[in-house]
Amino acid sequence: MLQTLIDRLCRVLTAIMVVFLALMVVMVFGNVVLRYGFNSGITVSEELSRWLFVWMTFIGALIALRSHAHLGTDTVVSRLPVVGKKICLGLAHLLMLYLCWLMFRGSWQQTVINWGSTSAVMEARMGYFYASGLFFSVFAFLFILVDFVRLVTGQLAESELIGVTESDDMPHGNPEVDPQPAPQVKP
Rank of each mutant, 00 (worst) to 15 (best):
M1N: 11
M1Q: 08
L5K: 09
D7L: 02
R8D: 13
R8C: 15
L9V: 07
R11P: 15
V12M: 13
T14R: 12
A15F: 04
M17C: 12
V18H: 10
F20N: 15
L21F: 13
M24V: 13
M24K: 04
V28Y: 03
G30I: 02
V33G: 07
Y36L: 06
Y36H: 02
N39I: 10
S40N: 13
G41A: 04
R50D: 14
L52N: 01
L52C: 03
V54G: 09
V54T: 08
R66H: 11
S67G: 10
S67F: 10
S67M: 05
L71D: 07
L71F: 13
G72V: 00
T75C: 15
T75F: 15
T75E: 11
V77I: 05
S78M: 01
S78H: 00
S78T: 01
P81K: 07
V82H: 03
V83I: 14
V83M: 08
V83G: 14
K85W: 04
I87F: 08
L89F: 06
H93Y: 06
L97M: 06
Y98A: 11
W101L: 10
W101A: 09
L102D: 08
M103T: 14
G106W: 06
W108P: 09
Q110P: 04
Q110S: 06
I113P: 14
N114Q: 00
T118M: 09
T118D: 13
T118W: 11
T118A: 15
V121C: 12
M122K: 05
E123K: 07
A124V: 11
M126R: 10
G127F: 00
Y128N: 04
F129D: 04
L134Y: 00
F141V: 10
F143C: 06
F148V: 00
V149S: 02
R150I: 13
L151N: 04
A157H: 08
A157K: 06
L161E: 05
G163K: 02
G163L: 01
V164G: 03
V164P: 01
T165E: 10
E166V: 15
S167E: 07
D168R: 06
D168G: 13
H172W: 13
N174K: 05
E176G: 06
E176S: 15
V177W: 03
D178C: 00
P179M: 02
Q180T: 15
Q184W: 15
V185T: 14
